[in-house]
């Protein structure tokens, strides 16, 4: 899919359109930063890169190929990562894969699959579900200390509940014949 379909609205300052672009672009941009994962905080770099994409989008001129904004995001992310490596004098691993930016990584968009995930979430025991819901509701806006305090949990208890939630979700999906990602259950 060509995510540039969202470009006119993004350029006009429509944050909802940028959200739709993010939903498709984020997994691919994240993967292109994998080789930096041991030497920089990829989540921090990724969020900053995506923020910069929003800032430059109104001036972006497509070159006629698909996913121009995604390719720009990948460049911004890599440049930012390289700057961080220089700043911290770290050495990243060699890249292990070349992604095709014209073919963004697939998102979980199948409505039936999404419903299975929701069903499995609804079956979680109370405490793990509270921890999972708190993380989702905060949307990266509060740290785990604050989320734990709001739930009257110690930080370690909160994190253990979150770990339990993702493992139980993975088990539930596995039983439903769905294997999303082995990392979730490990």
């Amino acid at each position: 899919m060509d995510l540039d379909v969202h470009l006119p609205l993004i350029a006009a300052g429509d944050t909802a359109a940028f959200g739709r672009w993010l939903a498709g672009a984020e997994p691919t941009v994240r993967l292109t930063l994998r080789s930096f994962a041991t030497v920089i905080d990829v989540e921090a770099v990724l969020q900053e890169a995506l923020l910069r994409v929003w800032q430059v989008a109104p001036r972006f001129v497509p070159d006629g190929r698909e996913n121009g904004l995604l390719r720009l995001a990948i460049r911004i992310g890599r440049n930012l990562a390289v700057s961080e490596v220089r700043r911290t004098k770290a050495r990243p691993a060699e890249p292990t894969e070349d992604l095709d930016p014209e073919a963004p990584a697939p998102a979980v968009s199948d409505p039936m699959l999404r419903q299975k995930i929701v069903d499995c979430r609804d079956k979680l025991p109370a405490k793990p579900r509270e921890a999972l819901d708190a993380r989702l509701a905060s949307a990266g806006g509060e740290d785990d200390d604050a989320l734990a305090a709001a739930l009257n949990m110690r930080l370690n208890t909160f994190l253990q509940n979150f770990t339990r939630a993702r493992k139980l979700l993975a088990d539930c999906l596995e039983r439903a014949g769905i294997s999303l990602d082995a990392e979730l259950g490990s």
Partner: peptide
Amino acid sequence: RALRPLEAALDPDGLSTTARA
């Protein structure tokens, strides 16, 4: 990387916590 698609699946707008942040 594994968590974000799961988060997006549980979000009404299909957004991960990274996208929301």
